[in-house]
Amino acid sequence: MYSNKYIYIYSSVMVIIVAAVLSSAASLLKPVQEKNIRTEKMTDILHSVHLDADRSTAEDLYNKYIIREEAINAGGEVVCRFAGGQQELGNVRPFEINLKEEQHKQQMLLDGKEAEAPVFPLFICEKDGKEYFIIPLLGKGLWGPVWGHIALESDLRTVYGVVFGHKGETPGLGAEISTLPFQEQFDGKTLFDEAGHFTSIRVVKGGVQTLPPDQQNHGVDAISGGTITSNGVNDMIRDCLENYLEYIKKHLAS
C-alpha cells in the first residue's frame, strides 16, 4: 500500500518539520531561560546576605547591593574585577564564571594534566555600611550536584549567612539542606580557630553537642537521614573555601 519511496519522503519531511519547529522554539526561548538562570543565581547571592529578593526584584537589588565582583587565582591575587557596571581588570566578568569548569581545570592540574589556571569568583556586597564577602560553592550530594553561597563578614572569618541548593536530593531528607532551619545554623559560626588555623565549618552527624566545647563554633548539626548529603555539604564548604585562603590572608594583611 505504501511504497518505500513514500516512507522515505514521509520520514524526511517529518524530520525536517520537527527539526525546524524544535530549534526555532529552543532559540526563541533561550534568552528567557538564561535570564531565569541568571536571576536565580542573583537571588541566591542576595539570600546569602539575608536580603529578601524574588524574581522580579533580583536584578535591581543585585545591582544595588553587590558593589564589586572579583575573581582570584590560586595565589589569591585578584585577576578580574567588575564594579559599577564596568570591567576594571581582566577580561571575564566574575559573575559569568562557570564554577564547574574552573573546578574541572583544577582537578586536571591536580592529576598532572595540562589545563588553564583556574580562577574563582567572589562577590562583595555592601549592606547597611558593612562589607560582606560572598563565595560561591559547588559540590556533590547523594544523587547529583549541590551548590550554595556563603557570605562572610568583613573580618573574613565569621559566617554571616549561607544558602544551599540541590538538584535531586531526597525530599524530606537530603533536600532539607535548602531549608531555613538548616541554613540558619551557619550564621555566626567561624571558619578559623583562635590560632588562625582554617577549620572550615563541619556538618556533624549526631549534632554539634558531640564536639568538644572549643570546636562547637565550627560545626553545625547534620540532617538526620541525610548523611551523604550532609557529608557532601561538609566537603563542599571545605574544598571551595580552601581556594580562597590565600586571598583571605592577603586581604587581612593589607
Binding site: 505504501y2 524530520v15 524544535l22 522554539a25 526561548l29
Partner: peptide, 27 residues
C-alpha cells in the same frame, strides 16, 4: 501514516511536543 512506521511517527510527535513543553516550562 504507513503502518510500518507508525510507532516511530507517534514517538516523534510525542517527543517533539514534550520537548516544547519542557522548553516552555524552563522559560
Amino acid at each position: 501514516i504507513a503502518p510500518r512506521i507508525r510507532i516511530i511517527v507517534q514517538l516523534v510527535v510525542i517527543a517533539s511536543l514534550v520537548i516544547l513543553v519542557d522548553q516552555i516550562l524552563k522559560a
